[in-house]
Structure formats: C-alpha cells, structure tokens
C-alpha cells in the first residue's frame, strides 16, 4: 500500500466521521487548526484507521499527529504491508 493509498483511505475515514469532504483532507492540513477536528474525533479517526489499516495507534501517539501527513507517515511506518 502506498502513502497515496493511505491518504485516500484516511480521507474516507475523516469524511465518514466528521462530514468534511474527503478532497479537503490533503497532507499539509492540520487536523485541529485547518479541519477543526477535536480530540475526541481524533480518537474516533484513530480507531477507525486501526481497523482499516491493521495498525495500532495508541492515545499517546494521537497527540503527535498534528497534520494529515503526520498520520499518513505514522500508519505507513506502523506496518501497512507494501
């Protein structure tokens, strides 16, 4: 799975949970500042991403996922099979 695939999948999750259009979910966007996503929605997004990508994203890690790009990199490194 490429980082582009992860981005596409993550954008679908964000749209489903927050209603934000998937095409607004681009790498440089900040979850909190640009997309106005709060900490509880981030937990929901993380748990949905865990299911979708088969990775673990503990609460402590969520705090470090400031941008969409941070999340894509984290999921890629956490072991999505290529």
């Amino acid at each position: 799975m490429t980082e582009q695939d992860i981005l596409t999948g993550l954008a679908e999750i964000v749209q489903e949970i927050t209603g934000i259009a998937a095409d607004r979910v681009t790498p440089e966007q900040s979850f909190a500042n640009d997309l106005d996503i709060d900490s509880l929605s981030m937990v929901e997004i993380a748990t949905a991403a865990e299911d979708k990508f088969g990775v673990s994203i503990p609460d402590a890690a969520i705090d470090d996922l400031k941008t969409v790009s941070d999340a894509v990199s984290y999921i890629a490194k956490a072991g999505v099979p290529a």
């Binding site: 900490s39 509880l40 937990v43 929901e44 748990t47 609460d59």
Partner: peptide, 9 residues
C-alpha cells in the same frame, strides 16, 4: 477522557 472515550466507543 480520551482513553474512556476510546473504550466506550
């Protein structure tokens, strides 16, 4: 809060 939210949801 976040851990309880994750567990509950």
């Amino acid at each position: 809060g976040p851990a309880v939210f994750r567990w509950a949801t």
